[in-house]
Computed example of a mutant assay.
Amino acid sequence: MADAARRCRMVFFTGLPASGKSFLLRQQISIAISLGRRVHIMRWDTGLSAFQTEDILARYPDVSDGTHPLIRKAAGLWGRRALARWLAENTDPIGMIVGEVPIIGNRFSEFIQAQPDQIEPALASEETTFIYPVPTKGLRANLEAIRRSTFANPRHPDEARDAPPSTMELAWRQTCAKTAELGLVSEVDIHSPYEEAIYVRFFEHLLRHRNAVRIAVDTIYTDAGSAHDLNANILELNASPNEVQLAVAEVEAAFTVEEAARDVENWYQV
């Protein structure tokens, strides 16, 4: 992480819900600032919230596995363009983006897809790193318990926007199913308990077009406070109302609702 803070323009934390992404993002910000970097952040939950207006949700309400597919695609479209715009406007190498991109279920999964646009060379370069924490089996059980507790009784406003326990459990079932479907492991029961090997093989596949780093996690820092306690001076990339409307309109023009749903279902095919 210190190496990434010195040399990278963009660092993204990805992986399963309740794997330590938010905590590591906070630590990455602290390291980068200590090295004199000027940090902006980009997070799926915050980016998505701009698209969850009363009008848009009335047209595209939540579905069984969370946000409507068309909204997910619009947020991803905005996200890649926002990164390109940030790089164009922040040419001083002292600037840096630190992001949290869950990927699973088409949540900024566009960031790992090789697409023919102006941001692709930067996303695929050595100046961008995708870090995914891999907790041990015992630690994962503890992190799941903590997520259930903080979601029910948030210590920080942003904890109420964390993936709920049902989404956390669904993400693991999807990981098992898609890893087996891709032939990365032998057939597994989608209700199997968490296994590091399944998780690692899936994310090695997902991140094969990116500079990726795996971090083994085996410790909980009980006195660390909420992982969402970030430096108040950090600026976060977010979509303006006009950008939201443009992204939604563009996705609507390109996809029917059924086509968007099928496209989102295939998010892991990178």
Rank of each mutant, 00 (worst) to 15 (best):
I112M: 02
N142R: 13
A75D: 10
N238R: 14
G138T: 07
I190P: 06
I104Q: 05
G20R: 02
H40L: 09
I41W: 00
T14F: 00
N231W: 14
I112L: 01
T129V: 15
A254T: 14
A114D: 15
D92S: 02
A124P: 01
I29K: 05
A82C: 10
R161M: 11
A2G: 03
P121D: 02
L230Y: 15
F255E: 14
E259K: 00
E204Y: 01
A58P: 00
R214Y: 00
N231C: 11
L123C: 06
A5T: 05
A261N: 09
G138S: 09
R37M: 03
R43Y: 02
A247D: 11
E195M: 08
E187M: 06
I190C: 03
T256W: 10
L246E: 14
H209T: 13
E258D: 12
S240T: 15
F108V: 05
Q115V: 14
E196K: 10
S19R: 00
E258L: 04
S186V: 13
P17L: 03
Y194T: 07
G99P: 03
A260I: 12
H209S: 10
A249Q: 11
I56Y: 14
G47H: 06
T179L: 02
I119K: 11
E204M: 05
G66T: 07
D3L: 01
A50I: 07
P164F: 12
L170V: 11
F51T: 08
P116G: 08
I112A: 00
N211C: 12
A249I: 10
W44S: 04
T14D: 00
A32Q: 01
A74Y: 15
G20Y: 04
P154K: 05
E127K: 15
Q113P: 02
T128E: 04
E126M: 12
S186C: 10
P17R: 01
A227G: 12
R148L: 13
A84V: 09
Y221K: 07
A88V: 08
Y221G: 05
Y221Q: 09
E187Y: 00
P157G: 10
G183V: 01
E110M: 11
A249E: 13
A216G: 13
H228D: 04
A160Y: 06
P135K: 08
L123K: 07
R201I: 06
T179W: 00
R173Y: 01
A177F: 02
T136W: 01
V264S: 15
A141G: 08
Q115K: 14
T129W: 12
R85V: 08
V101H: 10
L230D: 12
S109C: 09
D162C: 10
W267P: 03
V11H: 02
P69F: 05
P157T: 09
L57R: 08
A249H: 09
S125V: 06
A163Y: 10
E100D: 04
L170M: 12
F111I: 14
E159L: 03
S64V: 10
A141E: 14
T14L: 02
I103L: 13
